[in-house]
Nucleic acid binder design. Structure first.
Lengths: 111, 111
DNA sequence: AATTAACGATCCATAAATAGATCATTTCAA
DNA sequence: TTGAAATGATCTATTTATGGATCGTTAATT
């Protein structure tokens, strides 16, 4: 058990678990062992185990790397279109205000 | 510059940047400052900045937490359905083989 | 145009993640 | 059923991320 526990909301925690499920599913579908995936991702075997378990402390780069290798599609963009997606979105980002002049803490997430 | 650089594929790196864009977009749409988002997420202001920049070293729990607060939908499941999604998927996961008996490194990701 | 809050970057100390090894157990295949 | 490989767990050393503070700059309001 870690010394201190970083609090995470149920939604974020479940999302991490869900992604872990998708990765494990993809790995098994491709007949890859945990060790093989670890090697291809350039990380340790233990880290892949934590990623598949939905550990919220894992670096997002390692998680996305594992996802990419086993073919998990992220944010509705495949390997060929992700970079294009990012690029075209830079323009719309540029139109947004650079600073927010507001003091309301903004209630929250309704979607 | 960090002592060692963790290598990440373009797809994984772009996915992190894309998520950062979505979070920044959501934050600005809700008129929240970086500091306000940081406080609500229980992290530092600097971490929110790195998250929005697409830093691959950020913990996935912190990133998903920020995403949840500003209303970014993860893996086609909203707050009300994410946990249900995870739960119902445990069954299908249980049907998958527990160990992979194969030596092929499996080329990779085509989708 | 002036004011001032928000932003982005950097530095340091500390907390935490990761690698790597080991061991027991499970589970697939012969 | 048996044997070997894969998995899951745990431990320690080391690398790395994070918090918190600070500073110059940018950009919203008035």
């Amino acid at each position: 058990m870690p010394k201190t526990n970083r609090p995470v909301s149920p939604y974020a925690a479940d999302a991490a678990i869900r992604l872990g499920q998708l990765i494990r599913r993809g790995r098994i579908d491709r007949h890859m062992t945990v060790a093989a995936l670890a090697e291809r991702a350039g990380v340790s075997r233990g880290l892949i185990q934590r990623i598949e378990a939905g550990d919220t402390g894992c670096a997002i780069g390692a998680v996305f790397e594992a996802a990419a290798i086993v073919g998990v599609r992220l944010f509705d963009a495949g390997p060929a279109t992700m970079s294009r997606e990012v690029e075209s979105n830079r323009e719309v980002m540029a139109l947004l205000p650079k600073a927010i002049r507001s003091q309301r803490t903004e209630p929250n997430d309704d979607f």
